Simulated assay, not measured.
Amino acid sequence: MPFVLKKLFVKEKQRAFIFLIKELGYAQKEAQRFIAKGRLLINGEVMNISSKEIEGEVEFIHFEPATRNLKPHIEYEEFVVFDKPSGVLIHPQNRNTQYSLIDELKYQYGMNANITHRIDQETSGLVLCSKNKKSERDLKIMFQERNMNKKYLAMVHGKLNSNISIEAPLLRKEDESSIVRMVVKVHKDGKKSKTDIKVLKYFPELKMTLVECSPLTGRQHQIRVHLFHMKHPIVGDPIYGQSEENIIKFLDKELSREERIKNSGASRLLLHASELNFKLYDKNYNIKSSVDFLKEVQKSLLI
């Protein structure tokens, strides 16, 4: 398990965050943030004031990355790219999460390595990760300033006859009436959002269309919500387009593979981050996934 309760001994009285910097090698901001989050305990009680002086035995909830031997897709001096399988989290959901991509990254490249953007747990494909603090900052700025071109492959329900550009504002807010508390939906009060959709192939026997999606903005669930809004939801989506009963069963991990295929068309979300194009330190990069997405589609349709 990546989060472990570590017993530590403070020989000389000192401020809590300074001790964590010396003992575990954290940067000052990290040490202060972890203490504020309640990860430092004294006599079993949370001590969340980073400037408070401590002495003697303390306990700290320490992140110790684990590995499942997921090999990087491609590696450069400043960054590395993983081809994440569907079902793998980017970050732990809580302290009981057994494994996420951040485990693999930090296990292989050290604690200064970090993930620079997110894709959903069920979305497979390319994830760009920094190997040091400088490249982390520069890559995150690139995403924020939209200097990163991303392409996704998706299998959607129904037949799309032509390429489309979806411009629909997306609102992300907590909805107390919804079973999925944090919902994303098309709404006039939402943020400007645009996704270009290119039709690749229609499969009449499946009544599904393979499309390439280029999100020109980076909203949460953007591609999923835009395609659902156009009445062509992504095959295998367990949330958008599903009944409340089936959403509850999915969230409670009580939805069988057979039920999910019957309800949504596939055993996983058929969305794959397939390509990244960007310029970093005066060099252009075009990185493509090596995964055969159509084979993944085929596997996910079988009961």
Results as ranks from 00 to 15, higher is better:
residue 155 M to E: 05
residue 274 S to D: 05
residue 206 L to V: 04
residue 117 H to Q: 09
residue 99 Y to T: 03
residue 41 L to Y: 13
residue 2 P to H: 12
residue 116 T to C: 15
residue 114 N to I: 00
residue 126 L to P: 00
residue 55 E to V: 07
residue 295 K to T: 08
residue 57 E to H: 07
residue 40 L to M: 05
residue 299 K to Q: 11
residue 57 E to I: 10
residue 96 N to C: 03
residue 96 N to Q: 10
residue 253 K to F: 11
residue 95 R to I: 08
residue 139 L to H: 07
residue 207 K to I: 04
residue 137 R to P: 02
residue 38 G to P: 02
residue 109 Y to E: 07
residue 34 F to N: 09
residue 294 L to D: 00
residue 275 E to P: 02
residue 9 F to I: 09
residue 296 E to K: 10
residue 241 G to D: 08
residue 160 L to N: 05
residue 198 K to V: 09
residue 105 L to K: 04
residue 215 P to Y: 06
residue 173 K to E: 14
residue 266 A to Y: 11
residue 294 L to C: 03
residue 277 N to W: 01
residue 103 D to G: 13
residue 149 N to P: 01
residue 43 N to H: 11
residue 39 R to I: 03
residue 24 L to D: 13
residue 293 F to N: 02
residue 303 I to E: 15
residue 234 I to D: 02
residue 159 K to T: 10
residue 154 A to I: 06
residue 290 S to K: 15
residue 20 L to F: 07
residue 224 R to E: 09
residue 26 Y to R: 05
residue 175 D to N: 15
residue 151 K to P: 02
residue 120 D to I: 06
residue 38 G to W: 06
residue 108 Q to E: 15
residue 185 K to P: 03
residue 230 M to R: 15
residue 50 S to V: 05
residue 168 A to Y: 01
residue 105 L to C: 06
residue 181 R to N: 06
residue 187 H to D: 13
residue 62 H to C: 09
residue 62 H to K: 13
residue 79 F to N: 01
residue 245 E to F: 15
residue 245 E to M: 14
residue 282 D to M: 07
residue 138 D to I: 04
residue 55 E to F: 12
